[in-house]
């Protein structure tokens, strides 16, 4: 059974108008139809967080939303994060500096989660437990999370703590 539906949405600032089979989830729509392969699929049932994107600014698992449900919505993916000139976003820069990625598979989801966290904190500095709780929906099998947490602490942690710009392994101070 093919159940095509028309969807119009805005993806990374660009209007999109497509037909899509109703059973196609949003991550597959982004990856296959729009060729935005930066959104990764890990588990495809809502556990790993690799496919995290922003829908109207809120972090969402793209494997747990149908493309048809995104009709009329504004979607932001990892492709929108760095500048057109290739200059990394401060979150990407911090992850790179702190060795917050190895294989990089989970990284797009982590970045999108941190973007929402940065907006929601509204300038308030965050503690390490708060950062770990926010990142708990993104699984990473490489880094043991320390590098990711260090990167987030660099950006959102208390500013009076002096942070090293050297990569750390196993220490968050």
């Amino acid at each position: 059974m093919f159940d095509p539906r028309r969807v119009t949405l805005v993806v990374n600032g660009n209007p999109v108008d497509r037909m899509v089979d109703s059973r196609v989830h949003l991550a597959d729509f982004l990856r296959r139809d729009l060729k935005l392969t930066g959104t990764h699929l890990g588990c495809e049932h809502g556990v790993c967080g690799a496919c995290t994107i922003l829908v109207d600014g809120a972090s969402v698992r793209a494997c747990l939303m149908l493309a048809v449900q995104a009709d009329g919505r504004r979607i932001d993916t990892i492709e929108s994060v760095a500048g057109d000139d290739g200059i990394l976003h401060p979150i990407q820069e911090a992850l790179s500096r702190r060795h917050g990625l190895q294989c990089g598979y989970c990284t797009p989801g982590v970045v999108m989660t941190l973007l929402e966290l940065d907006r929601d904190r509204d300038g308030r500095s965050l503690s390490e437990p708060e950062i770990r709780a926010a990142l708990s929906g993104n699984l990473c099998r490489c880094t043991g999370y320390q590098g990711i947490v260090d990167a987030a602490l660099d950006l959102f942690g208390p500013k009076n703590i002096e942070t090293s710009t050297q990569p750390t392994h196993g220490s968050s101070t």
């Binding site: 059974m1 093919f2 159940d3 089979d21 059973r23 196609v24 495809e44 149908l66």
Partner: peptide, 11 residues
């Protein structure tokens, strides 16, 4: 895996 086919309704 992917969802099996269905008809979608958005009342």
């Amino acid at each position: 895996m992917k969802a099996p086919p269905f008809r979608y309704h958005a009342p």
